[in-house]
């Protein structure tokens, strides 16, 4: 479903070239819950940006749902993000001016769905995250954990191919982090693929599969071995 072949990403500034990702080969299957870990600056966010078509790359191929993403136009990439990917960010990134309902509505509008279908999906998504009763509230009226749940509702409302989460619990205290993690597991158990970058080893261990990135290089560890690696790290 998601396959990277020989993907490299180099950031060039006037002074330095940073090899943020080096020849990444990776295959993630439908329904997996994958955690991505690694030291700071190792390339986790870069990986996620490429996987999420937020950034372009020059080397290698990236097949998403059978389609090679490399070299697609900006508009086409927007479409892919909109239709195939659900994003969850560390800092939630809700639109502060819009009530929850309309926040969840944002990607659905760009998809050009009918008002009726959007309404159904929004209500269902907010129910899933347990915030259906607060649809007309503004994001600032919610706690951090609640805001992240709205972001999750926004990510799943469009039934994406997979969810990409960059440190989804990074800004939350442990109790709220726990709740958000449970919600993600719940969503995954219903069939949605999840790729989650995290610093938290405990959370990483709860995934089926752990991908570690060191200095731009990926080592892929299946669930069974992942635990040991993380424990010994």
């Amino acid at each position: 479903m998601l396959r990277m072949e020989n993907v490299s990403k180099i950031y060039r500034t006037e002074l330095v070239e940073t090899h943020a990702l080096r020849k990444v080969d990776l295959h993630i299957k439908s329904g997996e819950f994958v955690s991505v870990t690694g030291p700071s600056g190792s390339g986790k966010t870069t990986f996620l940006n490429l996987a999420g078509a937020l950034e372009t790359f020059e080397e290698g191929d990236y097949f998403l749902d059978g389609q090679n993403v490399k070299g697609l136009s900006d508009d086409k990439l927007s479409e892919i993000r909109n239709q195939k990917i659900g994003f969850i960010f560390q800092s939630f990134n809700l639109l502060p001016d819009l009530p929850l309902f309309d926040n969840v509505d944002v990607p659905l509008r760009y998809r050009g769905m009918s008002a009726k279908e959007r309404k159904e999906r929004i209500e269902h998504a907010l129910e899933t995250v347990g915030l259906a009763s607060r649809m007309q509230h503004l994001p600032t009226q919610l706690s951090g954990g609640q805001q992240q749940r709205v972001a999750i509702a926004r990510a799943i409302a469009g039934d994406p191919l997979f969810l990409l989460a960059d440190e989804p619990t990074g800004n939350l205290d442990s109790l709220m982090a726990q709740q958000v993690m449970e919600l993600l597991e719940d969503i995954n158990s219903k069939g949605t693929t999840i790729i989650m970058v995290t610093h938290d080893d405990q959370l990483a261990r709860r995934a089926h599969r752990n991908i570690q990135i060191f200095d731009g290089q990926v080592s892929d560890i299946e669930k069974s071995v992942a635990d040991d690696v993380i424990r010994s790290a």
């Binding site: 927007s78 479409e79 993000r81 239709q83 960010f89 990134n93 639109l95 502060p96 760009y110």
Partner: peptide
């Protein structure tokens, strides 16, 4: 940040 968020969520430049 909000504009970037909209772009991430699928807004085209024209949007």
């Amino acid at each position: 940040k909000q504009i970037g968020t909209r772009r991430a969520l699928g807004a085209k430049k024209s949007d």
